[in-house]
Design a protein around this nucleic acid. Structure first.
Lengths: 347, 347
DNA sequence: TCGCAAGAATGAAACGATTCATAATCGGAG
DNA sequence: CTCCGATTATGAATCGTTTCATTCTTGCGA
């Protein structure tokens, strides 16, 4: 049923080489021949077989992207940015979610490796990068996304998560909170660890401020809800007066849980800061103060670094964006609607 | 750098055929040979070349999924369902977003066709299905998702959108609204047209209820915001007293826009119903009444139909799920927190 | 008319895994 | 000790595209 260049060649009365040239270097072929071949292609409904093409080329025209969670709008936006930046170059982005599981991540890498992807963008689950190192040595350019490369051995596009954690918690301290809960996990995820470290940095300078970590199994709405319920179960006097969630999904889950107790108010009783500033944060039941990361730009930049890496044997390059605290009702309450004080405020 | 079966064969002192057998039918190979080959593979870091494998096989082990918007959580969930259902079968889902553009959709189909995908799941932009028909005739099973096949010529998994539109608007009528605005578009998208049709059905029986359609260019938050602002600009007396948005993203945009006018209240002045019941609907600034579709299940079922279609030459099969109205604050106001009246209510 | 350079077209070889008809090997029955 | 069937292993052929060293055409100047 499916026709090949050979069929097209026969139909057009030319050689297979010529058909290939029409497809790939039309400037090498005379106009009349091009037309004849094009007509034959049309008539036969010929469609290039990508597998054969790749086999010959040795590499695919696909770039693998492994993220922690394909349902998290932050990563969706990141993927969108990568995709867009990739279109013109004629590449395709193959997206996979590791669901924060090392096994799933390994399976995706297997898949991408068998696919001979032209490059790999990854937000790794574990800190161990040996497999990525091997991959790169085998000739596949690798760029870490949303995550720095501590030893600078990889190119990476990230946001300063320590700083992000710091400004989030500093903000909570600024509005007078003393008993701060950090929720997020597992800590094996670099981003989570860094944000927590930033939180510690901020509290370190204040002897009267306590920071307690609640570990989650994943960065999802339902985990947020779970921890939220746990916090609700604590006697009112012992509850934290502020929560810093490692991402917005967790924070939204917390909002949902806290809404169950109608006498508890955000931010009066508990202030809340999220992370990522996904689109839904500003439209949340309680508009969420959050640390914004430029998701789309991260994706686009990662592709750029990848291309550069694929070009020559560049030294790895680190791009670090600065996070930006967006304050809203969940920490400022009514005053969120008033003029901002140097910090960006959005309603 | 990359090694082939030939290298492995040499290293293990066997023939290429045997290596292939170890990989694909180990039961045909003696244990000792398996071990020798496995060791060689390990030593060489051999990774199967998928392109070569596919070339020989004629088809890839990939299933293409084309959705309208990769950033819409509804489709993300749908993709997740498909992915999950596909894993065991050893297939991969390749996800692409058409962004509601026919050109982009065509480009994705080109890509998938060159890839010789094993099957195609698609939520088409246009009503014209001729290309899909051709694709199927060429041997690629096709299943429509989130969209019925009016002439029953394709297998499809959908939700009864007419009914969904009807219950949404009936609910608005039940709570006493008379001037209802439908927002959504373009109408060339089947789902949107169906939901509107359902809305008309509901209003038809009530002479005193008016239905006005506001056409959007896309089903996104920003388009929702735009229409919301338009509605705000209308003199208070002429404004609709209810809005039915064709999806939740639009509805969230409307909420954001209406929030600009602090004297206008949801649902008192304008009630609002969305569609899809994405996770964020319940956590929205105004918890959103919405028509729920079982996104994950749709994806999973679509894969099942696809497999069946790929098996024998089945007659096309239509699976239609029933939508479910979830009522929340955006239509019921305070009473949303009270006991439900037969209709599912969630807070 | 001949020779020649530039332009166009050719087709065999190569990419790497899989298949399958054929060959080798082995163990046990007679 | 042979022979036979069953179990394993072999390797050439194949999938479809691209590449590239060759060959074939042209048109034109000498």
């Amino acid at each position: 049923m499916a026709s090949s260049v050979r069929d097209v060649a026969r139909e057009a009365g030319v050689s297979v080489g010529t058909v290939s040239n029409v497809l790939n270097r039309p400037e090498k072929v005379s106009p009349s021949t091009i037309e004849r071949v094009t007509a034959a292609i049309e008539r036969l409904g010929f469609v290039r077989n990508d597998a054969a093409r790749q086999l010959r080329a040795g590499r695919s025209r696909t770039i693998g992207l492994v993220v922690l969670d394909t349902r998290n709008p932050f990563f969706t936006d990141l993927a969108h940015g990568a995709q867009a930046r990739t279109l013109d170059a004629g590449f395709t982005v193959l997206l996979g979610g590791s669901d924060e599981s090392s096994e799933r991540e390994a399976a995706l890498l297997d898949l991408f490796e068998e696919h001979r992807v032209a490059g790999l963008l990854i937000s790794p689950v574990r800190t161990d990068l040996s497999r990525l190192r091997r991959l790169r040595e085998a000739g596949t350019p690798v760029v870490l996304v949303d995550r720095g490369s501590s030893d600078l051995s990889f190119s990476s596009v990230s946001v300063d998560d320590v700083e992000g954690g710091r400004v989030a918690v500093q903000h909570l301290i600024d509005i007078g909170r003393k008993r701060i809960a950090f929720i997020g996990g597992p800590l094996s995820i670099e981003q989570v660890a860094q944000r927590f470290k930033g939180a510690q940095t901020a509290t370190a300078a204040h002897a009267d401020v306590a920071l307690v970590a609640h570990s989650t199994n994943a960065l999802t709405v339902s985990e947020g809800r779970r921890i939220g319920e746990q916090i609700l179960a604590v006697p009112a006097g012992d509850r934290p007066d502020a929560i810093f969630a490692a991402n917005d999904l967790l924070a939204l889950g917390v909002i949902q849980a806290l809404a169950l107790n109608r006498s508890l108010r955000i931010p009066d009783d508990i202030a809340l800061v999220g992370y990522d500033d996904i689109d839904f944060a500003s439209a949340a039941a309680v508009p969420l103060t959050s640390v914004r990361q430029p998701a789309t730009e991260i994706g686009a930049t990662a592709i750029e670094l990848l291309m550069r890496e694929a070009g020559g044997d560049h030294a790895p390059e680190q791009v670090v964006f600065q996070p930006q605290l967006i304050t809203r009702f969940s920490t400022l309450g009514q005053s969120a609607h008033e003029a901002s004080r140097g910090q960006p405020t959005e309603v």
